[in-house]
Design a protein around this nucleic acid. Structure first.
Length: 849
RNA sequence: GCGGACGUGGCGGAAUGGUAGACGCCGGGGACUUAAAAUCCCCUGAGCUUUGCUCGUGUGGGUUCGAGUCCCACCGUCCGCACCA
């Protein structure tokens, strides 16, 4: 080793080229080795990778490289979630073609990822916007259609009349289109749906088996699926002219019912509105209610008495008023509820406002009086009261009893209601997977025959005129019906891009040209052993991917049901903000890290030397200017320092605050290791037992930390070993420790490791094996024992491991620090934790002072 | 409102109920140097009457020989959901 300093600008590209040339990280489908599929969520090709990608992919990379060293055949692929609106927006704003824009971005980002030295199998790279990918997606969509998992129905969309386009909810701001500013209309369109609800029970139940998923994510999915069991029950008016179907999860409280309420959109409310202007006015009022979180929270419960009276199912003598109420949702359950105010907060608020009776039917342990006092509903457990044949039963038994009687009387049935809706996948957009169907006046909706796939997006489109280019393309949509041969039209909707990301992990594992994947190869790689990505995908992406996997399993295309055995959600990269308040409009003006200089506690703007406010550490965002560009920092510090920073300090699931000082520390450590590796001397002799022990302990601990994704802990262990090696005198042990240290950092700092390895090892370190450990060395032969008196540490002693309690006590009692506190009293009790701690409890004899 | 996570030095954070603060950053002191950078060494939770003692893991209680860790109550921060019957 000749050079004094490690030079990333020359070493990084050299080793990246070497890995490329040798195809070091190419995964072999036929390998006899045990397999490991490590996957990070693939990026949207926005044009630049951001620091969050760097953190995400560095974690996956360390795991992938480590697994390789442990002898696994590792599949670690990368690709592009390449369809979506930003490409269309760019087309409209800059006049570029979405495809060209996307492919340029991919080229840029791929180069950026290469500069980080990730151990990726680029031979499996895919982009969802290419027919080689989405054509197979069309085939899978048709397979689902044949299996009855795809259907069409009318559904409302946000329609922007100026841009002539459908808007996603987040593109509607205060009721207006985000781009045009036009008032958004609700339009009913016939749209495609995937029957995710068919798997609701299974998707929910499957969560229980996902042992290596964060509880938080499982809980979010559980709430999203939203299973509730209860009773669907019919109420009639005395003359049977009105029938209301109600869903409740509390059938036990039926005798506490004091009203029935329906949603403003309920058919009965609509019918009444036609003949009653007061009802119509009230419904209009409900519609006006805000939709933001704050508005809903503060919204008052409003109701309109229809005048209709419904009979209580167990007592014709009880008449319940039928209200239209603003807090009842049409799209959940049946759009109608019965109100039991004593045991439901919303119902209680409503009942107090309209002076309806409030009857207690569940005793709260203090009282069972029929008249319910106060403004807080009781929702806890208890015995039923004031409920005739239910009296004395607990809540669960009463529920079952009411359901049984309802089913017997044929006016209700036990039922399960889900929050989960079927997945509307139609997007009235150009830049997405064309939905492979043809509309024929004679034959209806006809699937495109398999031999005509892929349905390829036309490239000759422009975005100068508003609306979906597929609709106005001169030739694309005109086809002949595959069934009758008459002129027909293509479906012009494209698939939600979540569909693209719902099976990409399968295509990575196996990508034959003539079909989506080879099930036999899928079976070898799947499930993904470790999936890593952002928490923002906790619900939609992960639920849709679980659904597609199940759907394909259901059809018989694959054996696997759960795609991701382990899931890890990493934290964000954050940074301080620097700002000043604009004296004119009072709004903060932000400055980037490059524009300021840190001085002591504060910071000043370089251009004028005056202080700026150092704000909270928050997620990096362009608007706050607290961003760092991966290319800049790689150029400045080298890929290994950047990677090391991504792994250091913060636990990977928590946010990582970026700091200049931190990355500089990492860059210094890279050089420190370089100098240390330069001291490797294969000819050195002599044994250093203590260093051997530290080495193997570090190897074992780092392995354990990496396997548990505790990268910050692994980093700390490596620092410790490096310090110990630096302090040690030359010996064969020291050389062995340097060699081991090099292997330990190889997954984290691969360029430095290759460069150093080329001076002392054979071949590439990327192909080297993880160092083995001597189990005997992991065990200490000396231990330091804490000596406590009454639970307080007074001294420590270092003794041979496994020494008896008596021997240790004798040594402890020889210490003046101990005897001072024990005094002249016989120990009343000794607590001994072998090799760790000795706690002396003195007798209760009071010492003369 | 409901649900969840978190709270430890100046900062990021370690810590199977058993020596709190590993490791890193910042800061201080020193060595080397004409000088600087780089590098190396030492110190670095607070307080005190400093051979040592006391306090200290958001607050207040509890269990225990012993609590950052377990239990109860509260405070704060962040995240998710949102009138889901």
């Amino acid at each position: 080793m000749t050079s004094e300093r490690f030079d990333p600008s020359s070493a990084d590209p050299r080793w990246q080229a070497a890995w490329d040339e040798r195809q070091t990280f190419r995964a072999d489908d036929a390998s006899p080795r045990p397999r490991s599929y490590v996957l990070e969520m693939f990026p949207y090709p926005s044009g630049r990778i951001h620091i969050g990608h760097v953190r995400n992919y560095t974690m996956g990379d360390v795991l992938a490289r480590y697994k390789r060293m442990k002898g696994f055949e590792v599949l670690h692929p990368m690709g592009w979630d390449a369809f979506g609106m930003p490409a269309e927006n760019a087309a409209m704003e800059k006049g570029v073609h979405p495809g060209g824009w996307t492919r340029d971005n991919i080229a840029n980002m791929k180069a950026q990822l290469k500069r980080l030295g990730f151990a990726l199998d680029w031979s499996r790279e895919l982009a969802t916007c290419e027919p080689e990918y989405y054509g197979h997606e069309q085939a899978l969509f048709l397979a689902m259609y044949e299996a009855g998992l795809v259907y069409r129905k009318e559904s409302a969309v946000n329609w922007d009349p100026v841009d002539m386009t459908v808007l996603a909810n987040e593109q509607v701001i205060d009721g207006r289109g985000w781009r045009s500013g036009a008032l958004v209309e609700k339009r009913k369109l016939s749209q495609w749906f995937l029957k995710i609800t068919h798997f609701a029970e299974d998707l929910l139940g499957g969560l229980g088996e996902l042992k290596n998923w964060p509880d938080k994510v499982k809980l979010m999915q559980e709430n999203w699926i939203g299973k509730s069991q209860g009773l669907q029950i019919r109420f009639w008016s005395a003359d049977r002219s009105t029938e209301v179907e109600v869903f409740t999860t509390r059938p036990d409280t039926i005798f506490g019912a004091s009203f029935v309420a329906i949603a403003a959109d309920h058919p009965i409310a609509q019918r009444l509105a036609a003949g009653d202007p007061a009802v119509a006015a009230f419904i209009e009022e409900c519609r006006k209610g805000g939709t933001t979180a704050a508005e809903i929270e503060t919204q008052e419960k409003l109701g309109h008495d229809t005048g209709i009276r419904l009979k209580h199912p167990f007592d014709d003598g009880i008449a319940l008023p039928l209200y239209i109420a603003n807090f009842v949702l049409m799209d959940y359950g049946t759009g109608a509820v019965f109100g039991c105010p004593a045991h439901d907060q919303r119902d209680l608020d409503f009942a107090r406002k309209y002076a309806l009776p409030v009857t207690r039917v569940v005793a709260d342990g203090e009282t069972s009086a029929p008249v319910f006092e106060g403004d807080e509903a009781y929702t806890g457990p208890g015995a039923l009261v004031n409920s005739r044949f239910l009296d004395g039963m607990d809540v669960e038994a009463a529920k079952a009893e009411v359901i049984a009687r309802a089913e017997q009387g044929q006016w209700g049935r036990g039922t399960t209601v889900w929050r989960l809706r079927d997945w509307g996948v139609s997007r009235q957009r150009y830049w997405g997977t064309p939905i492979p169907f043809i509309h024929c006046d004679s034959c209806g909706v006809v699937p495109v025959p398999r031999d005509q796939l892929p349905v390829v997006l036309p490239e000759d489109v422009d975005f100068k005129t508003p609306g979906n280019p597929l609709l106005r393309h001169p030739t694309w949509k005109h086809v002949v019906c595959p069934s009758c041969g008459k002129p027909a039209e293509r479906e012009t909707d494209t698939l939600d891009t979540f569909a693209d990301s719902s099976w990409y992990f399968l295509r990575f594992a196996s990508q034959p040209a003539d079909r989506p994947f080879d099930p036999e190869v899928i079976a070898r790689w799947l499930p993904v052993e470790q999936y890593i990505g952002g928490i923002e995908h906790a619900i939609l992406h992960l639920l849709y991917a679980r659904f597609w996997t199940r759907a394909l399993n259901h059809i018989g295309l694959i054996d696997v049901k759960e795609p991701f055995a382990s899931l890890f959600t990493q934290g964000m990269v954050t940074h301080e903000t620097y700002s000043r308040i604009d004296p004119v409009n009072g709004a903060p003006v932000y400055f980037g890290p490059a524009e300021i200089e840190k001085r002591g506690d504060g910071a000043v703007l370089i251009s004028d030397g005056n202080p700026v406010e150092v704000g909270r550490v928050i997620k990096m965002s362009k608007s706050k200017k607290n961003v760092v560009d991966p290319d800049d920092i790689i150029a400045q510090y080298g890929a290994d320092a950047v990677r090391w920073f991504m792994l250091s300090d913060s636990p990977p699931e928590r946010d990582l605050p970026w700091s200049e000082a931190g990355i500089e520390g990492c860059a210094r450590f890279v050089q420190r290791l370089w100098r240390l590796f330069g001291q490797y001397d294969p000819a050195a002799s002599g044994e250093d037992k203590a260093l051997d022990r530290k080495r193997d302990q570090a190897v074992a601990a780092v392995a354990e930390d990496i396997e548990g994704l505790g990268f910050n802990k692994a980093v700390a262990r490596i620092y410790e070993l490096a310090s110990a090696v630096e302090k040690a005198a030359p010996s064969a042990s020291r050389s062995a420790a340097i060699r081991a240290l090099l292997l330990l950092v190889a997954p984290m700092m691969p360029h430095l490791a290759e460069e150093a390895w080329s001076g002392l090892g054979d071949g590439l370190i990327s192909d080297a094996a993880w160092p083995s450990v001597d189990p005997a060395l992991l065990v200490e032969d000396e231990v330091t024992i804490a000596i406590q008196v009454l639970g307080k540490v007074r001294d420590t002693i270092t003794v041979p491991k496994g020494q008896t309690q008596e021997a240790n006590l004798a040594i402890a009692m020889a210490s003046s620090k101990v005897t001072l506190h024990v005094g002249n009293v016989e120990p009343q009790r000794i607590i001994y934790v072998p090799d760790r701690l000795l706690n002396i409890i003195p007798g209760r004899v009071m010492k003369p002072s």
